[in-house]
């Protein structure tokens, strides 16, 4: 292209001419998105950051001040233990979700597109399902009177119906339920753009499907998997209804306590400082997940670069 004489009429800079002299248009178009996102997203976060240092007053909500006792309480032994429980639960749920979502999404994207549609509809419908309805559904499914234990008794597999909710398993099962559709949809673009011929090529060279998946597919999607892991982790960590409804106090996570302080106890400054602690913790862990994913997974290294 550069050898053509027309290109030597230099400072024409054809590519950029498209973007010159645009005038005020792009800025006018951006005005509303910028305003809305700033006022309704950035400012609230700023308010929360400030609120953590304000003083709670009994009569109203709070008064402007600079006190550190909210953070002192947010970081006391009780809340730190709650934070640890929240993080561990979310990590376990994230891991379980990925273990199901990664192979499922891979297999799904290998199907003809028309065949994928019903599964995608189910996944989208499940994703949109209210956390409230999810909690309600699982509480029924795991209850004594209407749950699967009933079914197992009538099949003769169990002696007596039992109630598995509230409890740790109920929380984890429901966490994975809300996280799975999100994970599948987050993995979907990368997996469906993965060149079908790459795992096939591995097959022609003697790699059984699982071997090809581990040696070729996983290294190529590990970034997407890590990003999905971070997304799912944050999403689960921020869930409120599920731990509140399906968990015992032992499984009550930080969001339960944030909501409790903000709504029931009317202690917004403490809720805000808990939110900031949660935000920092979740961001750090999410970044760590992405970093682990971007660094190469341990793989059987070939000394190709040795020479």
């Amino acid at each position: 292209m550069s050898t053509r004489p027309a290109a030597s009429l230099a400072p024409m800079d054809t590519g950029a001419s498209d973007h010159r002299g645009d005038g005020p248009w792009p800025h006018a178009l951006l005005a509303w998105p910028t305003l809305a996102l700033t006022l309704l997203f950035v400012v609230p976060l700023g308010i929360i950051a400030a609120l953590g240092f304000f003083r709670r007053i009994q009569a109203g909500f709070f008064e402007v001040a600079f006190v550190t006792d909210n953070y002192a309480r947010a970081l006391d032994a009780f809340h730190l233990e709650r934070l640890a429980v929240s993080v561990v639960l979310a990590l376990v749920a994230t891991l379980a979700t990925l273990v199901v979502a990664v192979p499922f999404t891979f297999l799904l994207t290998r199907r003809p597109r028309a065949r994928q549609v019903p599964y995608l509809v189910l996944v989208l419908a499940s994703l949109s399902l209210s956390e409230v309805i999810v909690a309600f559904a699982w509480s029924l499914l795991l209850s004594r009177t209407s749950g699967i234990s009933n079914l197992l008794v009538s099949l003769g597999l169990m002696d007596a119906a039992a109630s598995w909710s509230p409890g740790l398993w109920a929380v984890l099962l429901a966490y994975v339920f809300i996280a799975l559709p999100l994970a599948i949809l987050s993995l979907y673009p990368t997996f469906s753009r993965l060149d079908q011929e790459l795992p096939e090529a591995a097959g022609t060279m003697g790699a059984a499907p699982l071997v090809g998946f581990v040696t070729v597919v996983l290294p190529l999607v590990q970034r997407a998997v890590a990003a999905t892991g971070a997304l799912v982790f944050i999403f689960v960590l921020g869930a409120y209804v599920i731990p509140q409804t399906l968990g015992r106090p032992a499984q009550w996570t930080i969001p339960v306590h944030i909501t409790d302080q903000a709504i029931m106890k009317n202690h917004l400054p403490l809720a805000a400082s808990l939110a900031i602690v949660l935000l920092v913790a979740s961001s750090l862990i999410a970044l760590a997940i992405v970093a682990i994913g971007s660094g190469r997974l341990p793989r059987i290294a070939l000394p190709g670069r040795a020479r």
Binding site: F41, L45, I47, A239, L279
Partner: peptide
């Protein structure tokens, strides 16, 4: 900013909204 809300625990977005409208 437009993509960020999904990278935030939902409960924090909610609390932010509550604080803003107060």
């Amino acid at each position: 900013l437009g993509l960020a809300p999904f990278a935030l625990p939902p409960v924090i977005t909610a609390l932010g909204a509550l604080a803003l409208w107060i």
